[in-house]
Computed example of a mutant assay.
Amino acid sequence: MATVQVFDVGSSKAEQLQHMKYQNRATISMLGAKSKRLRRVVTPEDGPHCEDLLKRGRVYLRWLDTIEITPQLKTKATLPEMLELITNKPELFYPQDMKASARALYKKWESENWGATNVVDEEEAAVEEVAPGNGQEMPMIQSPLPPSDHPIYGEQGIMHGIMVVRGPNGKMSYRLNPNVPARPAKIYGHNNIPIGSWFATRLVALHRGAHGSSVGGIAGSTETGAYSIVVSKAYNDLDDDQGDTLYYSGSNSHKNDNPYQSAPSSAGTNALKASLRTGRPVRVLRAGGPHSSKNNFWLPKCGIRYDGLYQVTGIRERKNTNGTPLLPE
């Protein structure tokens, strides 16, 4: 059975930040220090500890390529400095494959402006501010990969591209399968996804390039517009789904209790405002569940369905159940 090594890291930004801090200090810096003493690249023949450092370093760089970068992670985890350590310090000797991975990460994150305009779920982003300390070690797991003919996770299965990881405590989680490349979701338009396509979970929709977030309802850029949104029954008191026409409230709308003004626009709301400004169409997905379809005729009974491109045509202000103004729709 084929297996892949992964870290048992949660999806929250706080956990990711802690993991980065630890690996930067205990793996990347340690590898550099050892190579400096040896005056050459560290190899597995230098002992079990060196072999473990090399293994963890490679898995860490591969993991970094799967996360959504944010300016907070860039700064708090000193990511540019870490990548610089691997690629541009002549007194340190890192393996060529690690150098290539570090250069590719730097180029990728630079092209994204380190996530400065990306929409990030606000509750997740807020946690970054309180993640303390110098990080903690996350266990590394040898996780089995699904066979290609698996009825669910195989090439023809509804969960193709996803793998199941079971941590040391027995907790099960779903991850993107590193051996099955995901389609980029940061693209405007249909992204070669047929209207009516159905996805079992948001993570599957992320892998297929339909929606760029496994958590947030809005994915996009605050400068160029939203790539996609997910409609669900989450804010039935605010949103109105009429099929061809959607009234979609931005983040924080339901929390606002100030009767005199709208809540500040979130990154997601600003992305929708940018869509209005740029005229770029937005992919609309609808997410259903056991009870949600009873409240909204247009939602699927389960899973997530791609319903085509919509245009943002205007901004309105409504009142939520607190009787206070909402964020612009």
Rank of each mutant, 00 (worst) to 15 (best):
G154L: 03
R175Q: 15
E122F: 13
T43M: 04
H49S: 09
W298H: 14
F7D: 06
Y306R: 11
T278H: 13
G157F: 05
H211K: 11
G308Y: 07
S275V: 07
Y94I: 04
P151Y: 08
G243P: 07
N258R: 02
H150L: 00
A126D: 06
N258P: 04
P147R: 12
Y174P: 00
L246Q: 08
M20Y: 15
L206M: 10
I193E: 09
E122C: 01
Q261R: 07
R305N: 07
A267R: 07
G135S: 08
F297C: 02
S173G: 07
V119Y: 13
L299I: 05
N192M: 12
S213M: 00
K13M: 09
L85A: 08
T245G: 00
R56F: 06
A104Y: 11
D46L: 05
G157T: 08
T3P: 01
S275D: 05
R175K: 13
I315N: 06
N296A: 03
Y310D: 03
A200P: 04
L53K: 02
N169V: 06
A125T: 05
I67V: 15
E128V: 13
G115M: 03
L176K: 12
D307L: 09
R280C: 07
K233V: 11
I141P: 09
L238C: 09
E123I: 02
H49F: 15
D241T: 09
E45Y: 08
E110I: 14
M82W: 08
S265E: 12
V312Y: 06
D244K: 11
P281N: 09
K294E: 13
I195S: 13
D237V: 01
E15L: 12
E81V: 09
H190P: 08
G209Q: 04
N169F: 11
K186W: 12
M138A: 11
A274Q: 07
D97S: 09
Q23E: 15
T245E: 13
F297W: 08
S253P: 05
K34S: 00
M82K: 03
V282W: 13
D239A: 11
L238V: 01
R56Y: 05
N24S: 13
S29Q: 14
P178E: 02
A2K: 12
T27M: 05
M98I: 06
E329T: 10
M159A: 12
E122N: 04
T75G: 06
E15K: 10
P139W: 07
V215I: 13
I67R: 03
A200C: 03
I69A: 05
P300T: 07
A271H: 07
Y310Q: 06
Q96G: 01
I69R: 01
K89N: 13
D239Q: 11
H291R: 13
A182P: 04
T87S: 13
S228L: 10
H207I: 08
K36C: 07
E91C: 03
A226Q: 10
K21T: 07
T324M: 01
Q136V: 14
I141V: 15
R280E: 11
A104M: 11
N322Q: 10
V9T: 01
K99G: 12
D46I: 02
D237G: 15
M98H: 09
T201Y: 05
A100G: 02
R202Y: 04
G157I: 04
I69Y: 03
T43C: 04
